[in-house]
């Protein structure tokens, strides 16, 4: 099923533009936090990442999929699997962090809240998707 989100993600400019936008958000956040120099470094890193992706697109299958995660069905499938894998890794790290904090007798925040948010997001997504498919 083609979605509006997929339409944007088919463009070779999707990830470079996203990286640049994220860099600008970093800049704004660090500027507000009285660290404009750090913000400029963050923006440069994100802009550089986008430029590298564009440069490598024709030579690297990984860069091509990173640039255009919805280019075709295989790219979408790999993007989905990689996203799920990354999610499992992050949730696992959060759970370990919660256990370590509890074992130290310390407050498990903010790891417990992050883990709860991940769990609730999964349940809501599962509930919504199983009604549509």
């Amino acid at each position: 099923m083609q979605t509006l989100r997929d339409t944007y993600r088919r463009s070779r400019w999707f990830m470079p533009a996203f990286a640049l936008a994220l860099g600008l958000v970093f800049l704004a956040a660090q500027w507000i936090g009285d660290d404009p120099a750090g913000g400029l470094v963050s923006l440069a890193i994100m802009a550089g990442f986008g430029a590298v992706l564009l440069a490598l697109e024709s030579r690297s299958g990984t860069a091509a999929i990173l640039n255009r995660p919805a280019h075709d069905e295989r790219a979408r499938s790999l993007d989905l699997a990689a996203t799920a894998f990354a999610g499992v890794v992050v949730i696992s790290i959060i759970l370990v962090a919660v256990m370590v904090q509890l074992a130290r007798g310390e407050d498990p925040s903010p790891y417990a809240e992050l883990g709860a948010a991940g769990g609730v997001a999964y349940l809501v997504a599962l509930f919504g998707m199983q009604r549509r498919r």
């Binding site: 299958g61 091509a64 280019h71 075709d72 069905e73 295989r74 790219a75």
Partner: peptide, 9 residues
């Protein structure tokens, strides 16, 4: 309407 890499795969 797919990538060359997809045909190869």
């Amino acid at each position: 309407g797919v990538s060359r890499q997809t045909i190869n795969a």
